[in-house]
């Protein structure tokens, strides 16, 4: 078994080892996150990319231990600065959340409290984690708003969330998340609900703040464009497992896992004219999580799957170009076509 830190050029700030989070119903167990490994390098951005149901959001909630009944983290380790978060008491966790690790969500309107002013909501972090007085905290809140590029911050602190536009609200969320100067920021689809011109502003802001404050970021998204633009490393998830984990350039320039290749090929692009050809598709749809395939999770949709793939689950292994890949094709046990070229354009 390979180590997630093997591909990093930097020290990791966070390392997730064999994380398992399941949801329990009367009848069965849904393995939303099923043995996930990755590491986040200091001062850099790791992207976690996948489609609905891949487990990317549950992974991020697990890191902050925000999983609620009927969900449960049932195994693995989450090492933050070398210490296992899963072993901490609830009181210790509270000191970490919003202070050392912060999170921003997709829909700022549902994460912000509509009956408190923006200033009150940012101040809360300062008062809880840094014991500031109300007045002092309010002053720092205005400074935070200025930091995230909100004009006339002294007036804005007195406004309520509904008085702000979507882009402004997301800036407020970022201001709250960054208030206590966290070392790790988890951003769960931070720009998905925004228009592209506003998305460009927010991504630019996050990059700029990372340069200035030096925090590490986990960027959770389904948008491969956002990954290419903002991330240094990327973990591609499918049905609760990481299927490919590598430096961002390697994933886009030399994808190895058939799922990664399929995702990239099925994406229509505004900067390239494909002409009048069909888009390449990944056949079928994601299987129901209460009925997981026995072997490789992707085998039922994979154009290269063999008997081995349907029978046995492959491990995440290091490939020759450094990518970590969960696929039989790159192992000695591979029983299919030895010359198989996964990245070759195929017509379906």
């Amino acid at each position: 078994m390979v180590k997630a830190t093997d591909i990093l050029d930097q020290e990791p700030i966070l390392e997730v080892k064999d994380l398992q989070t399941s949801f329990f119903t009367d009848k069965f167990e849904v393995k939303a996150v099923d043995g996930v490994n990755f590491a986040v390098p200091k001062g850099k951005t790791l992207g976690i990319v996948g489609e609905s149901g891949s487990g990317k959001s549950i992974t991020s909630l697990s890191i902050l231990r925000l999983i609620q009944n009927p969900g449960k983290i049932i195994g693995g380790e989450i090492l933050f600065k070398g210490e296992n978060i899963l072993k901490k008491s609830e009181a210790e966790m509270r000191k970490i959340r919003g202070n050392e690790i912060s999170m921003i969500f997709q829909e700022p309107m549902t994460s912000l409290n509509p009956v408190y002013t923006v200033g009150q909501q940012i101040s809360e972090s300062f008062m809880i984690h840094q014991n500031m007085s109300k007045k002092e905290a309010m002053k720092r809140s205005a400074e935070m708003l200025e930091l995230v590029g909100i004009p006339s911050p002294k007036q804005r602190v007195k406004q309520y969330p509904h008085e702000l536009s979507g882009g402004m609200r997301q800036r407020v969320m970022i201001a709250i998340a960054l208030a206590c100067d966290p070392e790790l920021l988890i951003a769960d689809e931070p720009t998905t609900a925004l228009d592209v011109t506003i998305q460009a502003q927010i991504l630019e802001l996050m990059k700029d703040l990372q340069d200035r404050l030096g925090m590490s970021i986990i960027m959770i998204t389904h948008d491969l464009g956002v990954v290419a633009e903002t991330c240094d490393y990327v973990a591609v998830m499918y049905m609760g497992k990481v299927v490919e984990y590598a430096k961002v350039r390697d994933v886009f320039k030399n994808p190895k896992h058939p799922y990664t290749v399929g995702l990239l090929n099925s994406l229509p692009r505004h900067d390239i004219d494909l002409g009048d050809v069909e888009l390449q598709v990944i056949e079928g749809s994601v299987p129901s999580p209460d009925n997981l395939p026995k072997g490789c999770r992707f085998a039922p949709r994979c154009p290269f799957a063999t008997e081995l793939c349907h029978e046995k689950l492959p491990d995440l292994e290091q490939s020759d170009n450094g990518n970590q890949i969960r696929c039989w094709i790159y192992t000695d046990e591979w029983d299919g076509d030895q010359e198989v070229d996964v990245s070759a354009k195929r017509t379906t």
């Binding site: 491969l224 290419a228 633009e229």
Partner: peptide, 11 residues
């Protein structure tokens, strides 16, 4: 608008 769209190609 066109330039604001992130392109899935790091280069």
């Amino acid at each position: 608008l066109l330039s604001a769209i992130p392109v899935p190609d790091p280069d």
